[in-house]
């Protein structure tokens, strides 16, 4: 494993219309790492993912991915470099069937998971292929939302709060899935509010507050400073 970061975010500022959401974010993600962005509601975690993906258009600073600057690129161009994004609200398309949802993202580069392997890894979806996207349960929607971005060939995943609003047993399942993906070599940047979930899966935690990074801790440091971390999250 090289130590060159796969993603380097430097002095990233971002705006929603007139209101500023990010005020100079700095952090890196190394290849094969699983990093979480943790912090309170509205701290700018989701905005960071959306900025990396180019969905938030008004942004300044530097986002280097795989050695190349992407801040001036459009969303689809960023995706083609090998980044995949799973949004907080999952965005399963209601007017598409599960099968259509699953195979909608095109294969952009080699290295993606084949459709057969996807169904093997996400067996729940197998029986639901023909039903409408809106008919799935929350957990199934989350599985589908993660599964469908794995076929493009992107090796870097942005996952926004995959545990949100799900029953504990489903959260556990999702956690296992994410660890599996890490084992398969995916690099993952995860936004989480659920500290327990984040502690279980992550190598490193980046704490976000008011649109800036205020702390970075590795897994061991978090365990040693649990009080401080909980204070960051307000729990």
């Amino acid at each position: 494993m090289t130590n060159d970061p796969l993603l380097t975010v430097a002095d990233l500022h971002a705006w929603y219309g007139e209101s500023k959401a990010l005020h100079g974010m700095n952090f890196t993600v190394r290849p094969g790492e699983l990093v979480t962005l943790i912090g309170r509601n509205g701290a700018g975690k989701s905005t960071t993912l959306r900025s990396i993906m180019g969905i938030v258009k008004k942004r300044k600073g530097s986002i280097r991915f795989d050695g190349q600057e992407t801040i001036n690129r459009r969303t689809y161009q960023i995706a083609r470099r090998g980044i995949a994004y799973c949004p907080e609200e999952r965005a399963i398309f209601a007017s598409l069937t599960v099968a259509e949802n699953l195979t909608l993202p095109p294969v952009l580069k080699p290295g993606g998971i084949s459709d057969d392997d996807l169904l093997r890894q996400f067996p729940n979806l197998q029986q639901r292929l023909r039903s409408g996207g809106a008919k799935l349960s929350g957990g199934e929607q989350q599985m589908l939302a993660i599964a469908r971005i794995l076929r493009t060939g992107a090796r870097f995943l942005l996952l926004d709060e995959p545990s949100e609003g799900l029953a504990p047993v489903v959260v556990r399942e999702i956690g296992e899935k994410i660890l599996q993906l890490k084992e398969q070599g995916f690099t993952i940047l995860l936004v989480e509010q659920n500290l327990q979930f984040a502690r279980r899966v992550a190598d490193r935690h980046v704490v976000v507050e008011n649109g800036v990074v205020v702390d970075t801790l590795d897994a061991a440091e978090v365990e040693a400073n649990l009080g401080r971390v909980k204070n960051y999250l307000g729990v």
């Binding site: 993906m53 969905i55 459009r74 969303t75 689809y76 995706a79 083609r80 995949a84 994004y85 949004p87 965005a91 398309f93 209601a94 007017s95 598409l96 259509e100 949802n101 909608l104 993202p105 095109p106 952009l108 971005i149 493009t152």
Partner: peptide, 22 residues
Amino acid sequence: GAYLRAANERSEIVESFGINVP
């Protein structure tokens, strides 16, 4: 048509799949 229907719902998500939505 599936691309079109999906983009009708959430065009930025379809674009994040690497599809040239513009």
